[in-house]
Design a protein around this nucleic acid. Structure first.
Length: 563
RNA sequence: UGUCCGAUAGUGUAAUUGGCAACACGUCUGAUUUUGGUUCAGAAGACUCUAGGUUCGAGCCCUAGUCGGACAACCA
């Protein structure tokens, strides 16, 4: 069975290695030719763009092969996990546009079954209780190049192991007093096979099971078994778990009948993005040390941060598609992320006029009491978006950087004696530059050509077109100009420096009084616009009626270089 | 001195399974443009990690090596 046939007209897209594995399994009728994946985050932090790749992969595969995808919280460590994270994860996955099969699952749903299987292992002589301290166990484990040594408790009787394990569960021992270990192979070249720990004692409240348990299963013991219980066929994870796969399989061997259904672990290379950090630990550090304003700070590579920044779910899914799936370590250039959001917003964002650094222009030959409503197109890429009217009058704001007193030859904007077109309005010429006592430019006095009204059919051309906003009609807005958080392409790739040494001091610049066209006074947070010639901006949740707050998502592509 | 994994333009991913190394981002030209955006046309950029081998033919198969990554939490 080959599901690879694409609809006619669509470009052939090569299968990545996981799709190849799946198609082979499907063809062989493995696991009744089902495809069932899962996204298994630990609720100990917010999801980031790397998780988005994994989400798109797992849910995308299920979609492509008419399968299912579960959302499962890997909540086996009550000391780090919180409900807040569970909630944020569900919100992020849904926002990305995916629907998990049934209710969210939790590894903690399977604690009873895991416990029962553990007793089974003990009964079969495949697990034992070890009384040694963490330090001693760690010492005995050896090193990657030196085999471990067996614990003196390894040969305890089944009865004693069972009794001790039950008493561990009953809460008779303090944290760290004993652990349950699988009896595998202390001489294995794979460290994970050297009698891995199944259960540790943790007298702490679990966010879902409360105080029902004081022993908690380790990741390796919980994960594959959870996959099995959920009927997962393809358990996709990142490369660092590759070395765990023999253990994943060993555990499954203990509970799965040969030839029957069985999940398979497949590893792919995690996403890295230049100029950012991706570890939850470091992101948590940025939040806790107040370097950013929370997990959803628009500078964070978290899904909630990108959402607040103005990224669309479509752009993130497109990005996940563009980065591909393979097994080699990779660093994706941020440019690709920015390409993805520009591509999307170019098609859908309404163009509006906004002046961030206002310079007053007085049009001396324009009547003082006059206001014209100029028609302007909402989106040149989307005719259906229609037109709207914007007010024009004698005094306007233009961008300060759109004027130069002594312009280089390639400068197409306003300068003394030069002309520019005001977008959707008239061509003006700069006649006079007004300065204050310090030589600071305070105002430009210009004259307009009445025959050049936009849409009047005039054919007079000028080199440049600039944006503007009528001074008497403009509203004030706060605009937050975000730039990359780190100045180095690989912030944690330096031996003698810490990632925080590369923080960009100008990652956030707040413009308290930007001038916007009046139609923008009432915006709903999350609305996205293109500020003409400046970039894409998204209304922040801090907006209030009459005083919007905008976040800059990304600039427009800048191909112009100074001479 | 171990085990596992990986290596193709600057970046990422392909190469229909052994047949002229392609696509995307990025870079550079030019055209169009009432956004220096978009769009369009084009260009540069690769000893496919190295050395052997198999073959009429190797990015792909084999051998050896080099380089990079992962593994020594009672984290996931």
């Amino acid at each position: 069975m080959n599901n690879n046939t694409e609809p006619a007209g669509e470009a052939y897209k090569a299968l990545h290695f996981i799709e190849e594995i799946i198609e082979k399994d499907l063809a062989e009728g493995k696991n009744q030719s089902r495809v069932h994946t899962r996204f298994p985050p630990e609720p100990n932090g917010y999801l980031h763009i790397g998780h988005a790749k994994s989400i798109c992969l797992n849910f995308g595969l299920a979609e492509r092969y008419n399968g299912l995808c579960n959302l499962r919280f890997d909540d086996t460590n009550p000391e780090k996990e919180e409900q807040e994270y569970v909630d944020s994860i569900m919100e992020d996955v849904s926002w990305l546009g995916f629907r998990w099969e049934g209710e969210p699952r939790y590894a903690s749903d399977y604690f009873d079954q895991l416990y029962a299987w553990s007793e089974m292992l003990i009964l079969r002589g495949k697990a034992y209780v070890d009384d040694q301290s963490q330090e001693v166990i760690s010492e005995q484990r050896g090193t990657p190049t030196r085999p471990g040594t067996e614990s003196p408790f390894r040969s305890r009787s089944v009865e004693e192991n069972l009794d001790l394990f039950r008493r561990m569960r009953a809460g008779e021992f303090p944290n760290g007093a004993r652990v349950l270990r699988a009896k595998v192979d202390m001489a294995s070249p794979n460290m994970h096979m050297r009698d891995p720990i199944l259960y540790r004692i943790l007298h702490s409240e679990h966010h879902r099971t409360g105080d029902k348990w004081c022993i908690y299963p380790m990741y390796d013991w919980a994960h594959g078994q959870s996959d099995y219980l959920e009927g997962i066929t393809h358990s996709i994870c990142t490369l660092e778990f590759e070395i765990h796969r023999p253990l994943y399989d060993w555990f499954l061997d203990q509970i799965v009948e040969p030839g029957a259904y069985r999940p398979r672990q497949i590893e792919f290379a995690r996403l890295n993005v230049s100029y950012t950090v991706m570890s939850k630990r470091k992101l948590l550090q940025l939040v806790q040390e107040g370097i950013v304003n929370g997990w959803d700070d628009p500078r964070m590579p978290t899904i909630s941060g990108l959402r607040r920044r103005g990224y669309t779910p479509e752009s993130l899914r497109r990005f996940a598609d563009l980065v591909g799936v393979a097994k080699r370590d990779n660093v994706i250039e941020v440019d690709l992320l920015e390409y993805a959001i520009r591509e999307d917003l170019n098609k859908r964002a309404t163009r509006v006029m906004a002046v961030l650094d206002p310079l007053k222009v007085v049009i001396t030959n324009y009547p003082e009491d006059r206001t014209e409503e100029m028609e302007t197109v909402n989106n040149p890429e989307d005719e259906a978006a229609g037109q709207r009217l914007i007010p024009f009058s004698r005094e306007i704001w233009i961008e300060r950087e759109d004027f130069m007193e002594e312009p280089p030859s390639k400068f197409f904007r306003l300068a003394p004696g030069r002309e520019v077109r005001l977008k959707s309005a008239y061509i003006i010429r700069c006649d006079e530059v007004v300065k204050d006592g310090q030589g600071h430019i305070t105002e430009l006095r210009c004259s307009y050509d009445p025959d050049t009204r936009s849409g009047s059919g005039t054919d007079r051309k000028v080199k440049g077109t600039i944006h503007w906003v009528s001074a008497s009609h403009a509203i004030d807005a706060e605009v937050r100009i975000y730039d990359r958080l780190f100045m180095d392409a690989d912030p944690d790739g330096h031996k003698d420096k810490e990632f925080k040494d590369f923080l960009n001091p100008e990652s956030l610049r707040v413009i308290p009084h930007a001038k916007l066209e009046p139609g923008l006074s009432l915006v709903n947070h999350g609305e996205r616009y293109q500020f003409i010639r400046l970039g894409y901006f998204c209304a922040d949740k801090d907006s209030t009626p009459g005083k919007p707050v905008f976040n800059r998502t990304v600039t427009l592509k800048e191909t112009w270089k100074k001479a």
